[in-house]
Design a binder for these strands. Sequence first.
DNA 1: TAGCTCGGACCCTCAAATTG
DNA 2: AATTTGAGGGTCCGAGCTAA
Length: 540
Amino acid sequence: MTNSPKTEPKKLPVSVSRENLMSINNSNYTMSHGNSSPDQRPLQETKSEERTCSSQNQQHDKNNFVERPVLAAASTEQPSGTTIANEPKLGSRNGNITPPFSPQIQQCPVTYFNATLNQGVYQQPALTGETPTYTLLPTQLPPVVTPPATEKPKRHQVKNACVNCQKACKKCDDGRPCKRCIKCEMTDTCKSSTRKERKKGIKRGPYKKKEKITANPNATASSSTNIPSTGVISTNGQDSYGTMPIPLLGMPGPYFMFPTVSSTAAPYVFLTGACIPPMVIKQEQNQQKSNNNNTEKKEETLSSKEKSPDHQSRSSSISSSSSQQYQQQLKSDTIDKNVGSKLTLLSQVCSDMLKKTDPSLFHSSQTIRKDLHIKPISMPSFTSTTQTDDNERATDRLQAAVTSHHADLRQEPLKDEIVRESSEDNSIRESNKNIRQETGSHPQYTYQTQFMQFQSANNNNNNNFSQYYSYQDHQRQQKHQPILQQESQNQQSSNYSYIIRPTLPILQPSNIQQEIPAQLSQYHNSFLSMIPPQNKQSLP
DNA sequence: TAGCTCGGACCCTCAAATTG
DNA sequence: AATTTGAGGGTCCGAGCTAA
Ligand SMILES: [Zn+2]
Ligand SMILES: [Zn+2]
């Protein structure tokens, strides 16, 4: 197995070096590092207000720490040679929650991946059958729905590209690993990118007023020629408010150590997996709101009829990801001779496997591998099986976090906690205690603030503290792993719970509230109260 | 000429503004 | 409260560039 990403020759039919698929779904995630790719976007300062997103992203990428995802209680095999030794140097590495303010942070290397791929290899979903939508603007006459013959079908895009595709600005898909990463042999780093939370409180200026539709179309047409008070007539009939300067709110984007929770929001469910790819979460959401007839879903269903068999199978597997269905698909004619389809299917199965809920998916994936002459993988661990399970675990973790917090405030030792041995640990622990005492909140918020200030002072745009924190958390877990193992060997029931991970994935399903145990809500609320108000929103 | 880069077109989401 | 608007924040196409 090699970790170095490959470039892909153009115009290659779907034939990938298949051996490397064996690395898919190895339940340990590892990352390859130090591979500089020509595909990386250069760091660019774009001053333009309107089209900053792309360059912003790239810039953000540049400065991001390489995140090491952790799958809790993941499999046993530690892939050698790709672990900590290869990690980027990040300043303090002792696995404690120490302030990461070393200047080295700025030099943190970023992993770039060789990542360009022939776009033609992928079948674009045929969307020609989709009904075009027309918006009735006040400046328009009542709609005359006559789509131009030359109208291009809508470009299909995934909700979340994987980090590799995102960096390369290339087409991604919903599978994890995605097709492109499979081809480029970057399966172990194929993770869904995280979306920034949208800023709130941005004033938008008045919208153009809704016109009353009169019976006389001429009257409508004439009255709809907007002459804004500014005297500027925009070309599309809109007012010029759109060009009003929008106040920038402090730092580049809000930063959330924990997801912001508004008081009116439905309770969240904390997933238990330490690093479940967002993609997986999304699928669960889809499953759970199957009876939720939002337009998006309908559109998806509609268009899936028009899609290629390949795509169709993927869509259906999202709505029902049973291994039998995968098996059936594998047997079906459409997929029989098509390597690409099988790869897609494998990608999908592997993606579902990451949920670690259905061991039979593993066998399905093995079947496909066998079919594709790919070396089989060893069976990963499968853990939680139900939503209830997840809720219970989440409750446990929240309880642990809250208990730990309150105990620390009272300067009481946690009797269940692992005794840290090194003096270094203890000194940090002491300092953490002090911070808790002073601020009344979790030390990480102080660190976060300091981190942001440091980054700001050094003109470093990376404000992704959570990735850093996550990494450290991982380090700590690594350190504690032997202790936990020892405990389990000695038949001791481990009472130790890690303080809730700052980057714990969160699921907010639309119609699952009733399934959330009251206890979880309770601890969740307590937990939220630990977050000082200034950290609930963006930092200054 | 194949592969890479990256500007910007295109797309979706969702908070603000507006309407009922 | 429900609906509409339109900007934020994203995806990824494809023209132009570069190296072999
Ligand atoms: Zn991808
Ligand atoms: Zn990928």
